[in-house]
Design a binder for these strands. Structure first.
Lengths: 201, 201, 201, 201
DNA sequence: GATGAATGAGCTTTCATTCAT
DNA sequence: TATGAATGAAAGCTCATTCAT
């Protein structure tokens, strides 16, 4: 009983720290966020945070893990349903990825922001790899079905990742730029990428 | 006479600070470089730097302006020389853009990254965006030459920007990821983009 | 019944804390041992220790009392057994004293070092000083047996205390100094002291 | 001009820090003295101290060096004048050493206090060795003159150091103990030591 | 313009101790 | 009695910036 309640409260504080950090990191940049600022926002003593996270970088790592977890869920749904044209599945996958980034800008930016700020945590790295694995599987289907100009699955998968990542980062990073209508640009980028991969008949 | 010499020396010191900072920023990252380190490298007292730059971020801004100036020159050369296949010119332009980003990660991040700790300087912003105009011109040539599947110059240009931006940001943001060989990935992305645009004959 | 068992368990936990602390203090130094480390070693929550000891220094005090108790027992055995040459008994006593100091550096320092950070506990103080009384008795035997050059028991006893104290403090205070082999230096000091006291025949 | 004045002020602040630290270290113990406390006493910002000393341990090291310097001066005078009985010179040396310790209790305690608190600084170590060298020379004279029971210079020298060190530490560490008159105890200890060394005729 | 000592706020992190459960 | 999350003060240290000279 007691334990359960404790755990719940515990979990809640951990989540509060995560929420505060997520927002602050995204707003002010990892380097400009102090443990004190996070603690103040959660109305907790600075030292308390260290009961839940080893250090500052561990907070960032936890946020990234979270992001990958969410992304993974959506990705798996895509891979599991293997009906239809694989190339079209790839397009849907790309569309979903971009939308995810735009719907969770704080998560996304933090997870994929400039590497300087991101301390290396092996758990995060492997979580990222796992997420990417789903994209790879999608690409493999296209290659196996003989629908692609090229045969190197890894090369294609990473190229597509770069492309979709670019759309997200552009929208997030240049909010003031006179972009064409958002969904039109997304579809255009996806179309160019798919057509760039497709085998000419 | 005296005045002239002084001016030259002043200018020289400013340049030396810039050179030292440029190197240190690129090597250690903006946040890990202290004013003292820069001053030591130039063999000058810390306070002296403040006679030439308002603050630390002003040094970075100056470096970025400088660097974007160089990029612009290269870009202009590309546009000015209108010989050869426009699509190939576009490919060379994209390649140059990506290489620039990877060679000047700190400066690139300043202009294009979000939520980072780097201070935003408007003058740098506009210098960076000016570069986009050259891309637009390049794309127009392709469309005018009837080499593209689509006709909307703005849509194509922004799509290509997103794509090249994506490659740069991916490399910068995930330095630990097991990417395939860098130049191979760059060429692959460019190839997919160009083929995705090219009109099927 | 229940009460008795509880008491025994209590006593056991107290002893376990003492044992863990004794080892940690000796290994890492009083200042480098945290309550948490002690608690972890005993597999107990940090707060639990405070049910058995007022604070950190109380643990050290308890250990010292304990240890001085043991020293006293040894010393008393020496004095009680009055067979053999009193001067040799004195030598054995000195040897024992030095060894005691070197085997329990933290406890020794608590009682005899100055200006150190260790908190002073009066009960420990008096326990330590009680030991001196045994030295005095030993010296008196030598004087009474007519084996000494001098007759002033107090003067001789205090001189011997200073000497043995010196060996201990030297080893404890200058751990990096290139001393000759430890036991050789101890024997040398004792030999000089005994010969310096002995009546020339 | 300017430089000279600066240097003098600089030197003065350094000395003030040293003086404050010396007193605080001796009073409260090295571990209980904070940089902030030192800074407050000197009426200076905490960071300022770091312009004069690398870190906290460097302050302690500087104090120790100082002590050894003073001791060295006196010791050298003793060794230089080689007239008279070497054993008596040794006695005078011991007397001087003890007096030095009692006259500079703070310096002495700090330099020879329990090793835990004393971070190892090579420069301090070598300064200590140099000081000890003078004692060694004195002992060698006695051995060479055939005045000693033993022949091992190092063994005798270290034994004597232990003995004199003991007297100092005892007086400093147990100010409340009912010692016999100070100079009488000192002379007694020295007498026992010298007679303990002297070759029996 | 150049100096460089000094500032002072701020950093991450540690830890003995408390107290509601 | 035992828990362990939380405290809160403090620690050593850093650094962009200022200002008297």
């Amino acid at each position: 009983m007691l334990t359960k309640r404790r755990e719940r409260l515990n979990h809640e504080l951990r989540e509060e720290v995560l929420a505060a950090a997520r927002e602050l990191f995204a707003t002010d940049g990892y380097h400009n966020v102090t443990m004190r600022k996070i603690a103040e926002r959660v109305r907790v003593a600075p030292g308390t945070i260290y009961h839940h996270f080893d250090d500052k970088s561990a907070i960032l790592a936890a946020i990234c893990m979270e992001t990958f977890g969410k992304l993974d869920k959506r990705m798996e749904a895509l891979v599991t349903d293997r009906s239809g044209n694989p190339l079209e599945r790839l397009r849907r996958g790309g569309r979903m990825y971009v939308q995810f980034g735009l719907e969770h800008p704080q998560h996304y930016a933090l997870t994929f922001a400039i590497g300087d700020a991101m301390p290396k945590h092996d758990s995060v790295m492997s979580a990222g790899l796992k997420t990417f694995e789903n994209l790879r599987l999608c690409v493999r289907d296209c290659v196996d079905a003989g629908l692609t100009r090229m045969q190197d699955v890894e090369e294609i998968a990473q190229s597509l990742w770069a492309t979709t990542h670019g759309v997200v980062m552009l929208f997030l990073g240049k909010p003031g730029f006179p972009f064409i209508e958002q969904s039109r640009l997304i579809e255009s980028v996806l179309d160019i990428a798919i057509e760039g991969i497709r085998k000419k008949t």
